[in-house]
């Protein structure tokens, strides 16, 4: 297959970026999108064997759709035209021979471009650090089913936990809002008894961090849900809203007099 690629090139976060056009021929229809970019990079090196070549930088890791590293905005859609998959799971057979494909990085104030198509998604890590965990000391292995959990809640928590933190929701959102990501992380804990203990502090801390990092507000357009490679539901956003307002009404911070019984 033959493709014309328009790819965003940018030296670093400060530099002015531009689109470069590349022609690529003899691409197998069974080639994955990232393999196609590998072939292009190889071609760039081989064509200029005596020169130092600036190959195209893009994020990738596991290439089996579970790590959340790949992050390409292809022809107006995060992770390209395939529903419910990441870029690494996208194959060139989804395109027509001779297509022009435009590849851009995620665009958000909170995700600055590092180089070319690679963006800095540390903002997500900072949101997780703000409260996306359960702080209990681990002891011995607890008995299975020692803590009863409703089957439906376990399922919903598992669905929310499927979020790989790729940032496609931010990229798809017209407001670059991180609500789907944050709500999935809030939900996966809030639904389970182990997570409920810190749920009120967690939701407030994570929402405050999300706001601080410069993500936009949710307009309930639901482009995030449509583009999420893990099909995370916007029901999580409503759940986070509920959790947040409930915590605002009920969370009373008291002066701690230090120490527990132990």
């Amino acid at each position: 297959m033959k493709f014309t690629l328009k790819i965003w090139r940018q030296e670093n976060a400060k530099a002015q970026g531009r689109f470069e056009t590349y022609q690529l021929d003899n691409i197998s229809a069974d080639c994955s999108f990232l393999e196609m970019l590998d072939i292009l990079n190889e071609k760039l090196v081989n064509d200029n064997i005596s020169l130092p070549v600036d190959t195209i930088t893009f994020d990738h890791d596991c290439r089996e759709g579970i790590c959340g590293m790949c992050s390409l905005y292809i022809n107006g859609r995060p992770h390209g035209p395939e529903q419910g998959t990441t870029v690494c799971q996208l194959h060139m057979r989804r395109f027509n021979d001779g297509d022009t494909i435009t590849i851009e990085p995620w665009r958000a104030k909170a995700f600055p471009v590092i180089k070319d198509l690679m963006v800095d998604r540390n903002a997500f890590d900072k949101i997780i650090q703000a409260g996306g965990f359960v702080s209990v000391s681990t002891g011995g292995v607890p008995d299975a089913n020692a803590i009863p959990v409703r089957k439906e809640d376990a399922d919903l928590a598992m669905d929310a936990a499927a979020c790989i933190g790729c940032g496609a929701c931010v990229a798809a959102c017209k407001n670059a809002s991180a609500m789907l990501f944050v709500s999935a992380k809030v939900s996966q804990f809030a639904l389970l008894p182990q997570g409920k203990i810190e749920a009120k502090e967690r939701v407030q801390a994570m929402v405050a961090k999300m706001d601080e990092l410069g993500f936009g507000n949710c307009t309930n357009t639901y482009a995030c849900e449509a583009e999420c490679p893990k099909n995370i539901s916007v029901e999580n956003i409503a759940r986070m809203n509920r959790e947040f307002f409930f915590s605002k009404l009920t969370l009373a911070k008291r002066e701690s007099n230090g120490g527990g019984v132990g």
Binding site: F19, Y73, T102, R107, A172, G216, N217
Partner: peptide, 12 residues
């Protein structure tokens, strides 16, 4: 929240 926009308009 999005100082630099996309070239291809959003098709989601």
């Amino acid at each position: 929240a999005r100082p630099v926009g996309y070239k291809v308009s959003q098709k989601s």
